[in-house]
């Protein structure tokens, strides 16, 4: 399995993603600089890592969303390729229009950095074989993780099974405590928690996400 991890100026979880995908999930990982116009061939997964791309100028993820590589990422996603955005990567995917809604400053205006309990909100390929109602514990670290979406679109997310996780406790004021979603095609996923920070001896719950991605890829082949 081959994954590409994109580095934007200000990304700071790219090395952790690379390490975790290689050591814990068995991926072959290729690093991609945001100024590239093309993706390396035969990627099975693209990861947009966390961090503070472009210093969060204008809006979080806004500048990265118009980076040269993003045209290729959109094309890859339109063809059904798997794209995962973690934290800042989630913000970038929303800004790029690959995922619905937007992420704004936490309701408390404080930076939240701790392990949180998440409830699996739908039986979704990104969390298989875990079923709806199971709990996971993953670390979060964000100042702008309040997910906002208009009620009709939110209802659509719910009905189509696009809500992946909900915070057990609403740590940032997100609509319906949403912590992660997918697009309608279920091939693009965004989540505020960091699976790459919980895929070793300390915690294994992040590994469950990597395993689910592995299962999606095996089903496809």
């Amino acid at each position: 399995m081959k994954a590409g991890v994109i580095t934007f100026p200000g990304s700071n979880c790219d090395d952790d993603c690379r390490y975790s995908l290689e050591k814990s999930a068995g991926f072959e990982v290729q690093s991609i600089w945001h100024k590239e116009s093309y993706l390396p061939p035969e990627l099975d997964l693209i990861v947009l890592p966390g961090g503070f791309s472009y210093g969060d100028y204008l809006r979080t993820g806004a500048m990265a969303a118009v980076s040269p590589i993003m045209a290729a990422v959109k094309e890859y996603a339109e063809k059904g390729g798997l794209v995962l955005g973690i934290c800042n990567g989630f913000q970038i995917l929303c800004e790029a229009g690959l995922l619905p809604g937007a992420l704004v400053k936490n309701q408390s205006y404080g930076f939240v950095c701790r392990d949180v309990v998440l409830e699996i909100a739908s039986s979704n390929p990104w969390t298989q074989p875990l079923t709806q109602g199971t709990f996971l514990s993953l670390p979060v670290a964000h100042g702008e993780g309040r997910y906002v979406i208009e009620p009709p679109q939110c209802q659509e997310l719910e009905e189509k099974g696009q809500i992946l996780f909900r915070y057990k406790e609403n740590i940032n004021g997100s609509t319906q405590q949403i912590a992660g979603i997918t697009n309608r095609g279920k091939n693009v996923c965004g989540m505020m928690p960091h699976p790459e920070r919980a895929s070793d001896l300390r915690s294994h719950d992040g590994l469950k996400i990597w395993n689910a991605i592995g299962a999606i890829l095996r089903e496809r082949k």
């Binding site: 204008l58 809006r59 806004a62 500048m63 118009v66 929303c94 800004e95 619905p100 809604g101 937007a102 704004v104 906002v148 979406i149």
Partner: peptide
């Protein structure tokens, strides 16, 4: 439309 404003919010 392209960059300065996010019409979602």
């Amino acid at each position: 439309e392209k960059l300065l404003v996010n019409p979602v919010i």
